[in-house]
């Protein structure tokens, strides 16, 4: 697709020239591999000798919800350790008798659980990890479940806690052992990153406390508060690792060693589960903005400027990793560019 390829290169480079992000790494492919990919711009605009490269490590922010939580919950579901429709209170003592006890995992995965909209962990529960966990699991609901689709970080945080309870393992260990290692995602891990890796990590937002841009430390405040590991955010990854995952989702035969979840979980997740409620969502994945769910263009974004798309109908995936947060929290410039990127790849 020569014209498409040319257009993608130009589009992503325009994002650098227009000040949307300092740099980006992207790829488009199918189950067989990469069709095209590119890099543009710099890790840090003030360091002209540090270009973005294919192995640049990104703080993927909410892609963590897919990489760590969706994948491990799928593993537990596949192993018949979790019934998505069973109220949590019936098998999870930590939430039995609390409002969260009436919620089920399906509602958490579709963001219809009625959870409070903001995390606000430190303000509400302090800094002790146990107190935060207890506070989150015992919190009141913002509305009855299944009434509205409201994206919340808390859903992923709770599912992360649930995965840890059911597996008896910390979330980072669980994700590494059951998903990332089997698939060969060697660069995917929770932060803080080891010193040797920090140099090729794309910096994100200015940290007021240190006066420097965060680099190798999760931008997400909740993740940092929780020591780097939680279901909300905190994972770092690379283009190649995300490629491996997306290829596996299109074709399980591409994995050298299968991870804990299989095609059943992928199929289950890439379907609209929110009925007549808007916006439509699958299980953590959601139809790309501006597309008809029937188009099967599924996506997830990360606040730091990351995104991945998956379209089983077209046998195509795409990844666009940027560090737009270096410049700004404004959503609009990158949102527009993401839509153009997605339209170019998937039509």
């Amino acid at each position: 697709m020569p014209s498409t390829t040319e257009h993608l290169h130009g589009l992503v480079t325009a994002g650098v020239n227009d000040g949307v992000y300092p740099g980006a790494v992207w790829a488009v492919g199918n189950a067989d591999g990469v069709i095209d990919r590119g890099t543009t711009g710099l890790l840090d605009p003030t360091r002209s000798d540090e270009p973005m490269t294919p192995d640049t490590v990104f703080d993927v922010a909410s892609l963590t919800k897919i990489l760590a939580v969706w994948s491990t919950i799928g593993t537990l579901w596949q192993d018949n350790h979790l019934d998505l429709d069973e109220p949590l209170g019936q098998f999870w003592p930590d939430v039995a008798g609390y409002p969260l006890g009436q919620v089920n995992a399906h509602q958490l995965l579709t963001h219809t659980a009625g959870l409070p909209l903001r995390a606000q962990l430190k303000n509400l529960y302090g800094t002790n990890h146990d107190a935060i966990r207890s506070g989150v699991l015992h919190e009141a609901l913002h509305r009855p479940p299944s009434q509205a689709v409201e994206y919340t970080d808390r859903a992923a945080l709770i599912l992360g806690y649930l995965a840890e309870y059911l597996s008896g393992e910390p979330l980072d260990h669980l994700a590494t052992d059951r998903v990332w290692s089997p698939l060969g995602m060697r660069e995917t891990r929770y932060g803080p990153l080891p010193t040797a890796t920090v140099a090729r990590c794309a910096p994100t937002e200015l940290d007021e406390e240190t006066g420097t841009h965060l680099k190798g430390i999760a931008h997400d405040f909740s993740a940092r508060l929780l020591g780097g590991v939680c279901g909300i955010a905190g994972a770092f990854s690379t283009l190649d690792d995300l490629t491996v995952l997306l290829r596996y989702l299109l074709d399980p035969g591409t994995a050298a060693t299968p991870p804990g979840f299989g095609p059943d979980w992928t199929r289950e997740s890439l379907n609209v589960h929110t009925g007549s409620l808007e916006p439509a969502r699958g299980l953590f994945w959601h139809p790309a903005p501006g597309t008809d769910p029937a188009d099967q263009s599924w996506t997830h974004y990360g606040f730091t400027g990351t995104a991945m798309w998956l379209n089983p109908k077209q046998d195509r995936w795409a990844v666009l990793l940027t560090n737009k947060l270096y410049y700004t929290r404004d959503r609009e410039p990158l949102a527009t560019l993401r839509d153009q990127f997605r339209e170019t790849v998937f039509g």
Partner: peptide, 16 residues
């Protein structure tokens, strides 16, 4: 042909 540096914190601006 412009190279955009972002809105820099002071120490980074001084380096610039």
């Amino acid at each position: 042909d412009v190279h955009y540096l972002g809105w820099l914190p002071r120490p980074e601006l001084w380096k610039a």
